[in-house]
């Protein structure tokens, strides 16, 4: 089982790397920010598999932290990078 999980880790890591390459290239910043989201899911999957394969129980807690905080980079991007587009929805609709 360990071998299988380890292979899965490698496979997902490779997918992660490919995906990262494709979105970090751009063209826009929004694409690039998606990279952190990609790691948010792929990285968590890898962590969980790794933790089970190497029997490191604390890997679950690391994954939990990652899952909790994976949104933050995107939020910072939306807040600070696009404030004049009011990307959180302020501009698109006024009060009803």
């Amino acid at each position: 089982m360990t071998e299988f999980l380890t292979v899965a880790v490698g496979f997902i890591l490779a997918m992660l790397a490919l995906g990262l390459l494709s979105i970090l290239r751009g063209p826009g910043d929004a694409d690039r920010v998606m990279a952190t989201q990609l790691i948010g899911t792929g990285g968590i999957a890898t962590l969980l598999l790794l933790g089970t394969a190497a029997s490191i129980p604390a890997a679950i807690d690391v994954a939990l932290t990652l899952a909790l905080l994976a949104t933050f980079t995107s939020i910072a991007f939306v807040k600070k990078g696009l404030s004049r587009f009011a990307a959180d929805g302020t501009a698109s609709t006024e009060d009803e």
Binding site: G26, G28, L82
Partner: peptide, 9 residues
């Protein structure tokens, strides 16, 4: 001026 490179699309 607005920098068109600012956002992807």
């Amino acid at each position: 001026g607005d920098d068109p490179d600012q956002v992807g699309g």
